[in-house]
Design a protein around this nucleic acid. Sequence first.
DNA 1: TCTTTATGTTTAGAAAATAAACATTAACTT
DNA 2: AAGTTAATGTTTATTTTCTAAACATAAAGA
Lengths: 112, 112
Amino acid sequence: MSAFKFPVINPLLHNELRLKIMVALDSLESADFMYLCRITDSTRGNVSAQITILRDAGYIEVSKSGGLGRFSRTVCRITAKGIEALHTYEDGLRRLFSERVPNDQESRRDIG
Amino acid sequence: MSAFKFPVINPLLHNELRLKIMVALDSLESADFMYLCRITDSTRGNVSAQITILRDAGYIEVSKSGGLGRFSRTVCRITAKGIEALHTYEDGLRRLFSERVPNDQESRRDIG
DNA sequence: TCTTTATGTTTAGAAAATAAACATTAACTT
DNA sequence: AAGTTAATGTTTATTTTCTAAACATAAAGA
């Protein structure tokens, strides 16, 4: 009975755009919406959608100022929960990369 | 003009199941279909689909023996191209995690 | 006032992931 | 030897997710 298990990979973070947003927010004090669009080279619609997902997960906080329209400004900030999730995700991936799976292939089939 | 760019993330490998399959094949000489199902804790349908994608990308080779049915045996092996792609992906992610994005947020908007 | 520009969000379409259903064949049962 | 069960895999249909196009809002400029 091999109890081998791959590390758990957080599906919320295992998405290119969301991960880039989180990495950016982890390295800056805060970042606004349009800045995230630029550095991730993504459309506003996509960034808006992924930011909503990250906010709903409690990984970031989103604050809007300036009202709607021309001069609105939406700024994002990573939360403690987000930082922990990001680091756990990073650790899981590092472990995954160094994984050596057990070679017990013959034990499971009814040949021989 | 900041020319900042995040590392390129190979979308074929940035999928949990495909990545686990590749990591397993990178650490073993070869692995058969049912073994991959077990260690990845995934259904046969899903593994079959992802293996096809990896094969079409040239990242793995798939050989079948025993014909169809009860005692068929499908074994997968990573290719040189697959090894390189996996390591490039790993390197890109490591760089992403250590990324420090430029803090030039104020330079882009027409306030002030 | 009308147009243009700068934010964002909603929603509709595309793409991808997942599992359910199907297919194949060998062993077992009676 | 016909019928059943069990072991692989594949195809397909559903669900989920991603992406961008369309929409909405408001300020500045003509």
